[in-house]
Simulated assay, not measured.
Amino acid sequence: MIQYTNGAVTVFQSVLYQTTSTVVELGDAILIVDPAWLPGEVEAIRSYVDSVRGDKACYLLFTHGDFDHIIGYKAFPGAKTIGSAGLAEYPEKEHTLQIIRDFDARYYVTRDYPIEFPKLDIVIGEDGQEVMMGSTMLTFYLAPGHTAEGIFTLIDSAGLFVAGDYLSDFELPFIFDSAIAYEETIRKAKQIVQTHSVKLLVPGHGQCTEQLMEMERRVDLALGHLQRLKQAVIAGDEQALEQLRLEHGFVSPATDRCHRENISMIQKEYLKQGESGKI
């Protein structure tokens, strides 16, 4: 379904994980971000793109390599693809594809396009890298932490900040790469919000927002959770850790696994540092 539209930016939302997919009309180009999830949802995005594209060039951007964000890749043949150098060199491509195959097999899902891992035409390897898309400039920032290969995308002319799997209105940090990098990435997001004229923030899951105060609240929410988690792990405070577990949206075995992974990452990075007096 369409969650948001302002004429230039249209945000679709899947029923699964509230995953967002964004279509941006850039005058002489169309940008599609993370088309997902179910076949009918991907088809709705494709039909919308077909209705507005005309003879414009089409670009397909992947914020990171999680299976739910690359699942619609081959539904847009001919689109030029964009992603980070980490995505181009992604070490677990086959594992990610197998997750998709297993999901489709479990639920008897059929698709009219093949399941493949994205091959990139445009590779983002530097913080602040700029790419011209038609006549529009896009600026990319490396955003590791959730995963190693994440990127932020800024389109200043549209006031658009596409954050990938950060800054959700309900989803707390899931740390699969590095807790240290995650905190640095959130601080980078804070700087982006403060220094760019961001009029619309789109997270990978949940509701987009046009409100600066809400963007700042999400930055503070993520940073606050990380800080309290770090303190609880270092102190061995099981009661605080349990409270942090219960703060996750849609508490479930899946969020519990992510919470345990967060704890493990904190232990690996911060307790090891603590032994050498670096905390």
Rank of each mutant, 00 (worst) to 15 (best):
residue 131 V to K: 06
residue 146 H to D: 10
residue 87 L to C: 02
residue 146 H to R: 08
residue 109 V to P: 09
residue 143 A to C: 13
residue 82 I to S: 02
residue 145 G to P: 14
residue 131 V to L: 14
residue 103 F to W: 14
residue 128 G to I: 14
residue 83 G to S: 01
residue 94 E to C: 06
residue 88 A to T: 03
residue 116 E to M: 05
residue 95 H to C: 07
residue 120 L to P: 08
residue 142 L to R: 12
residue 134 G to F: 07
residue 136 T to S: 12
residue 114 P to K: 09
residue 102 D to Q: 15
residue 135 S to D: 11
residue 95 H to E: 15
residue 149 E to A: 05
residue 105 A to G: 03
residue 104 D to V: 00
residue 114 P to C: 06
residue 116 E to N: 07
residue 130 E to S: 12
residue 106 R to Q: 12
residue 87 L to R: 06
residue 91 P to I: 02
residue 84 S to A: 07
residue 124 I to T: 09
residue 85 A to P: 00
residue 106 R to L: 12
residue 99 I to K: 09
residue 119 K to P: 00
residue 107 Y to P: 06
residue 96 T to I: 12
residue 134 G to S: 03
residue 121 D to S: 02
residue 141 Y to Q: 09
residue 91 P to G: 05
residue 86 G to A: 01
residue 118 P to C: 08
residue 85 A to L: 14
residue 131 V to E: 06
residue 100 I to Y: 02
residue 89 E to A: 15
residue 101 R to Q: 03
residue 108 Y to M: 07
residue 129 Q to C: 03
residue 95 H to L: 06
residue 140 F to V: 08
residue 139 T to D: 05
residue 99 I to H: 10
residue 138 L to N: 00
residue 117 F to R: 06
residue 95 H to T: 11
residue 95 H to S: 09
residue 104 D to S: 07
residue 107 Y to D: 07
residue 83 G to A: 04
residue 82 I to C: 07
residue 105 A to H: 08
residue 116 E to I: 00
residue 135 S to P: 00
residue 93 K to E: 10
residue 134 G to P: 02
residue 105 A to F: 03
residue 150 G to D: 12
residue 127 D to S: 02
residue 101 R to V: 05
residue 124 I to V: 15
residue 128 G to S: 05
residue 126 E to M: 13
residue 123 V to M: 09
residue 125 G to T: 11
residue 111 R to Q: 09
residue 147 T to H: 10
